[in-house]
Design a protein around this nucleic acid. Structure first.
Length: 232
DNA sequence: TAGGCCATCTGGTCCT
DNA sequence: AGGACCAGATGGCCTA
């Protein structure tokens, strides 16, 4: 539970009881427990906020950074060193011996395909890193980074949480506007099912952005903004 | 030592 | 034909 301290209160509140079913597995539970006990998604309780140091993660990150792009010159050496270190890894059916028996041309093609696939996976991992960077969890060197699956599930829950918060905020703004005897465009629109208007809150039919750029809630009239409160 | 996570290789399929 | 995408297999690293 110590890791909870590194979360913003709102984020944790949303994740802890906002979407119980979908979030249970990722609800920032206890510090990293048994790997076997780690549940994903709605599989039940059991947090997935690892707390242990992550030397492996760092090593992986370095390896990823090193092996991005084309291999040439020094990069070739580094690449070969990694290949040797990871000897035998992932050969699949056939194995290295078969690979060596192949004609040089085919082997060359295979290597090029492998490199491309590696690059693709690195791009995917970069995107996942970008996702980790914007979702609320303990971004600390002493905390192991989220696994891929945990990152995706947490991101999903975070999006849902933000959407719900936005929806509630819009309702509140509408309520405040009504209280001042003003027409509330937001309230006039039927409340769309969660996940529609909440996720795409500024689509067709939404009021125009405030000319005064009250950007707190773009597209939503603010009770605190003089322009939003001006009658047409 | 078992289990989780991961990177890599590989072959297949689909698309341009 | 070449590239993107995918899933299976394999083995290394790490933690409990």
């Amino acid at each position: 539970m110590a890791d909870l301290k590194s979360l913003s209160g709102d984020a944790y509140l949303g994740l802890s009881h906002g979407y119980a079913a979908a979030t249970a597995g990722l609800a920032y539970g206890a510090a990293r427990g048994s790997e076997a006990a780690r549940g994903y998604g709605a599989s039940g309780p059991g947090g997935d906020l690892p707390a242990a140091p992550a030397p492996h993660a760092v090593a992986v990150a370095v390896a990823v950074a090193e092996s991005s792009g084309e291999q040439s010159g020094d990069e070739d050496d580094a690449f070969e060193r990694r290949r040797r270190r990871r000897r035998g890894r992932g050969r699949g059916p056939g194995g290295a011996a078969d690979a060596r028996r192949r004609p040089r041309e085919q082997r060359s093609l295979r290597l090029s395909i492998n490199a491309r696939e590696r690059r693709r996976m690195h791009d995917l991992n970069d995107a996942l890193d970008g996702l980790r960077a914007v979702i609320p969890y303990a971004h600390s060197p002493s905390v192991r980074k989220l696994s891929k699956i945990a990152t995706l599930l947490l991101a999903k829950n975070y999006i849902l949480m933000q959407a719900q918060a936005l929806d509630e905020m819009r309702r509140l703004v509408a309520y405040l506007n009504q209280g001042q005897g003003l027409a509330a465009p937001v309230a006039a629109a039927p409340l769309a099912p969660f996940g529609q208007a909440a996720v795409y809150p500024f689509s067709a039919g939404a009021p125009l952005p405030c000319p005064d750029k009250c950007t707190a809630f773009p597209g939503t009239p603010s009770a605190l903004c003089k322009h939003c409160n001006e009658k047409p």
